[in-house]
Simulated scan of single mutants.
Amino acid sequence: MKKAKRLMVFVLAFLVVVGLGACGQKADTTASSSSTTASTTAAVKATVIIQEDGKESDKQEVALAKDTSLFDAMSENFDIKDDNGFITSIDGKEQDKAANKYWTFTINDEQVNVGAKDVTVADGDKIIFNLAGF
């Protein structure tokens, strides 16, 4: 009788351990699927180059979520100030109205004439911000 009770306790303990192990595996699977979702969300990579008068001062490869605006991308990776979506300062380098110097930007060598809030970053974009006089 004692052997039967010990066997029963052993079997129950075994089932509990196996059951907990299965729960742990399921939790790990859920965690890996969440990280997979996060990695597909951050599927856009772009290069941002900061210049002053055409001379490069900073260059960063940025990873972003799909459909991120250029303004949000810049906010996440640089210290910026803006005026209604038009960037007026990047990392402390400000536009100078007296010297007629303003921030402009190109995407893939194409001049962009709207604010950074109105542009969505695409995978592989090369974005150049240039502080220059006119």
Rank of each mutant, 00 (worst) to 15 (best):
K3V: 05
T29S: 11
W103S: 10
K66P: 00
S39A: 15
K81T: 08
V17T: 10
A27F: 10
S57Q: 03
A43C: 05
K66D: 06
A4L: 11
D53E: 15
F134M: 07
D123E: 09
A4E: 09
Q95V: 07
L12A: 14
A73H: 06
K81L: 07
T47F: 00
V18R: 03
T37H: 08
D58Y: 02
D83Y: 14
D125T: 13
T104D: 02
A122G: 10
D79K: 14
K26H: 07
E52R: 14
D109I: 03
E94W: 01
G133L: 02
I80K: 08
G24A: 12
Q51L: 00
F78N: 05
A73Y: 04
N113Q: 09
L20T: 11
D28C: 05
M74D: 06
N100F: 07
K93L: 09
Q25K: 04
A116Q: 10
L70M: 11
A38S: 15
D123P: 07
S57M: 12
D123Q: 13
L131K: 01
V44D: 06
K5M: 15
F129Q: 05
C23T: 08
S75H: 03
M8N: 02
K3H: 03
K81W: 00
V18L: 12
K3I: 07
D118W: 08
L64K: 11
L131Q: 06
I127G: 06
F71K: 09
S34F: 13
V17I: 15
A99D: 10
M8V: 13
T88Q: 09
K2G: 05
E94V: 04
D125Q: 11
T120E: 12
V44A: 05
A46L: 12
G19C: 14
S33N: 15
D91I: 05
K93S: 07
V62R: 10
V44G: 03
D72G: 01
A116L: 06
V17P: 02
I127W: 06
V11W: 09
E76P: 00
L7N: 09
T88K: 09
D91K: 02
K3P: 00
T68A: 05
N84T: 08
K5P: 00
D53G: 12
G85K: 04
A43R: 01
I128Y: 01
Q111D: 15
W103D: 03
